[in-house]
Design a protein around this nucleic acid. Structure first.
Lengths: 114, 114
DNA sequence: TTTGATATATATCAAATACCATAATTGACA
DNA sequence: TGTCAATTATGGTATTTGATATATATCAAA
């Protein structure tokens, strides 16, 4: 068996510009980790800093960029600023990526977890 | 209902560097389209050029980069060079992205096409 | 009020990388 | 050789990145 499933990429191709832009946002380890963390719920900058282990200014800059394109939103509570996903766009992509990268690199043409 | 599903991002986070690198490869419209096209099977450079509508040298350079990281492989047949996916890594990601971006922005926490 | 502490944001800089268009080059073959 | 297909080289500009410094915001205590 070679490539069992035939994927219909038509819709993806037609949105290639936007999708590529979104992927670019996730094409840096820190931002990818941010997205993962925020999928679990709201988090403050310092919490993200601790979990991700990135320099705070860089984190802040990444969060600003994600905020500018409307992927995340911020909420200030006293000293801290809490970030969360703006909508389910990012969660869907992260979910899809989790599916694609789950269980190491097991060869499998259909998703097993469903 | 707000964010129905809790996604387990642990595995994704632990591979963040590699995944981010792969996403970077897909973070340009042309390369994303290349990946889509090759999911459908082998294609020559000129065929890709025609379908994607990108300048041929740029296409060649993108293909070279994808080749360098082992995502695609090339095969020469007389004058033409035919590219195909090296393994199912890219197909899995593209498949996942198709799932994430299918049907506009329909809310859905589990993949429907399985 | 000021002062100090903490949390976050913004600014800046140099190095690296990415991108595009164009030109030159290579490989295969009639 | 000449031509087609593809690759590589080149130059220019723009963006990204990490590191560092500085600025702003909030609150509490003095």
């Amino acid at each position: 068996m070679k490539s069992a499933v035939r994927i219909d990429t038509g819709e993806l191709k037609s949105q290639a510009e936007q999708v590529a832009g979104l992927l670019k946002m996730l094409s840096h380890p820190n931002r990818l980790k941010i997205a993962c963390e925020l999928c679990a719920g709201e988090a403050s900058v310092s919490a993200l800093e601790a979990r991700i282990g990135a320099a705070q200014p860089n984190l802040s800059r990444d969060l600003a960029r994600m905020r500018e394109v409307g992927l995340v939103v911020a909420r200030r509570q006293s000293k801290s600023v809490y970030y969360r996903l703006a909508d389910d766009r990012l969660a869907r992509v992260i979910d899809a990526l989790c599916a694609a990268f789950s269980t190491g690199g097991q060869k499998r043409s259909k998703r097993t977890r469903n």
